[in-house]
Amino acid sequence: MPIYINLDIVLAQKGMRSNELADAIGITTANLSILKTGKAKAIRFSTLEAICEVLDCQPGDLLEYRED
């Protein structure tokens, strides 16, 4: 899938750990790991909104389209 999740980069920029983000947005670390590794099939707007709110970023910072 040509949609890439740059959550690792944004997390590093904000100096936050994955488990802290998972606790803050109310999802399991396993689900966050699925999202980070690109195995997720879709992302809910509510999850995206929560991540953007906690990390103080835009959806465009997290998602990237790259042609394969």
């Binding site: 999802i27 689900n31 966050l32 699925i34 999202l35 195995k39 997720a40 099939k41 879709a42 992302i43 809910r44 999850t47």
Partner: peptide, 8 residues
């Protein structure tokens, strides 16, 4: 079901 489970 798999697609639903992998929707975060």
């Amino acid at each position: 079901k798999e697609e639903n489970d992998l929707t975060i």
